[in-house]
Design a protein around this nucleic acid. Structure first.
Lengths: 361, 361
DNA sequence: TTGAAAGCGCTAACAA
DNA sequence: TTGTTAGCGCTTTCAA
């Protein structure tokens, strides 16, 4: 059985297709209540649902959106960003085409062409981590950049406010009483790390804490990278060693936990840690749960879609919207340990603590 | 400037729209090379690309696929499944509509209606973890179920072969010499856990190892759940305690690591562990890296899409395809510890080991 | 309050 | 080898 058409409904209801169309689209002002009911009934009877394709051709509006992203498969963040975009799209009665290019330029070009051919009403160009990208050719005007900014402007974009987020993280530590705060940085993702570093420096300045270059170390964005960088920090002489570490991200923070545990340092008693990302299945599951700064992925996805669909009339044509990154307080931050005079005291106290670890079996 | 139409190209090239259509669709047999070139040139000149919407209306084939899933946002598996489906779709020149219902039935119904209205050529109904679902009404025939099976059949489906996967995991342990192997199970996800349990039992049987009910414990699927369940296992008298634990999933395995560390047990020297899922950012980043069984998400996604688009002519209309779960060998499996006579020996060796941990600073 | 008819942009049957 | 034309299923103008 073929898909019923509007004329089938018209015939069944004994009216014209115009009338059916009017009823189906709730332009009912001019249709009598009686006719309306007959049409509705007939539509249900034949199992009619308007063809979006035909409607799209006629109205030149498809109620679809294209979402192009570089990496969905390999990042744990994709989900929330997509969810935000999806929810906003659904609220507007739009369906979203998702294309993951895997970073391949040819696939990206093809995707833009295919999406354009599909006459999507809007387009979102998403990156899975905050960075500056070269806008690909062929993107329709009005495309919104999600978690990235076009190098040459020309498009609206939304990115996390990493500077303020970094500041919030460090302020958390300062508020707990720390003065020797390290920034465990990375060089893998320049934009975000530089911004978080700026935030770090601004808070040190506002708290009147001198900047110690030795407390700024880098590693690659993995637990292993975090661990090696942390080792360097913990190898510093006792009086120069940080009492708190702000980590570029949660994965690196996990490495800091490992490094700390291997030295018998207890978190947060001996060392406070703040991460970034609030990565699911990681941050909250540490022991103790990690205090971190959340990346507002859902909100960014939602914002991008709303702007793309014109729900939100955001200012300038190529303005960048900064989304707040909230601090998620858990249990990895505490006051700094009481000042210790001799470098060897800590090692001693470490040894004293060992029985505790054995006891809880 | 409006989108150029086929007639614009025809006018520019001085031919009919038929000719243009023929050329654009590579049905060139009847078109002279000369005309072909002229048309191509004209198309480029006016910046023409055929409208998929118009073509879809005319041919009744949209070259789009609908992918409905319950939870993308909250699962780390979604990505690879999507990637597999996407890649297969792209290979066929199809675009995919993605809808995440979040498990909401109303959203699901709306999505099915919207996708049907869009006249998608195929549909995939995906779950983010292996389970049996009630097929929602309105799904078009030919819909493929991904990582789930319809309770009443009627549709093709692809799911991981959890029974064989569970067997492979346990066989790994048996091969290393273990005889007291626990299954750290969960009740959160009945299908998968029951199948893996079957695999576990089958390998014990084939190895002639008696089943010890005390070695079958359950917890919820989290690090915390794994930890508590592991505590129960490790609390067993020395001679009944397992030398190896097969965990329902990697998250729970992480909890086992924690429990083991708190007792001073070293992995794999004192305890071997095998997980399941090969969860990114978790399994490989444990210390030591976790041996686990991978869920073939990419392959399942790819398979589902290929079957949905008819690339793969799979047998029966409602057959279930079982996808192999490969063992990922890392460093959490070793031979069982040498038999220890007295219950206290282990604690002694634990204490002896402590200096090692302190040394590596 | 309702209907006839044009046309969205394309493909394909048929004609030349 | 190429062109004319009907029609895919709908919306919308205009007329009744």
């Amino acid at each position: 059985m073929a898909r019923p058409r509007i004329s089938d409904v018209a015939a069944a209801a004994g009216v014209s297709v115009t009338t059916v169309s009017l009823v189906m689209n709730d332009v009912e002002s001019r249709i009598s209540a009686d006719t309306r009911l007959r049409v509705r009934e007939a539509a249900r009877a034949v199992g009619y649902a308007p063809s979006s394709v035909a409607r799209g051709l006629r109205t030149q509006q498809t109620r679809t959106v294209g979402l192009i992203s570089d990496q969905i498969a390999t990042t744990p963040f994709a989900g929330r960003m997509l969810a935000g975009a999806q929810d906003a799209a659904r609220a507007q009665g739009h369906l979203v085409f998702l294309v993951d290019t895997g970073g391949d330029d040819q696939i990206e070009r093809d995707a833009i062409a295919a999406l354009t051919a599909q006459q999507v009403d809007a387009m979102i160009y998403a990156s899975m981590w905050h960075r500056i990208v070269d806008a690909p050719a062929g993107l329709p005007a009005g495309t919104v950049f999600l978690d990235c900014r076009p190098a040459d402007g020309g498009f609206r974009s939304v990115v996390p406010d990493d500077r303020v987020g970094g500041a919030a993280a460090v302020r958390e530590l300062v508020a707990a009483g720390h003065r020797r705060i390290a920034y465990l940085d990375t060089t893998d993702t320049p934009i975000a790390s530089a911004l978080r570093h700026e935030g770090y420096l601004s808070v040190l300045a506002e708290a009147g804490i001198p900047v110690d270059p030795a407390l700024h170390v880098t590693g690659d964005t993995s637990a292993q990278g975090g661990r090696s960088a942390a080792e360097r920090l913990l190898d510093l002489p006792e009086d120069q060693r940080p009492t708190a570490i702000f980590c570029f991200n949660d994965r690196m923070a996990v490495g800091v936990y490992t490094a700390a545990h291997h030295r018998g340092l207890e978190i947060p008693r001996d060392l406070s840690i703040v991460g970034y990302d609030d990565q699911q299945l990681i941050a909250a599951e540490q022991d103790p749960p990690l205090t971190t700064v959340a990346l507002p992925h859902y909100e960014m996805g939602r914002w991008a879609m709303e702007v793309a669909l014109g729900v939100r009339a955001e200012g300038a044509e190529d303005a960048t919207h900064l989304m707040e990154c909230p601090v998620i307080r858990r249990d990895s931050v505490g006051p700094p340990p009481a000042q210790v005079a001799k470098p060897n005291r800590r090692r001693a106290s470490h040894t004293e603590r060992l029985p505790e670890a054995a006891i809880d079996r």
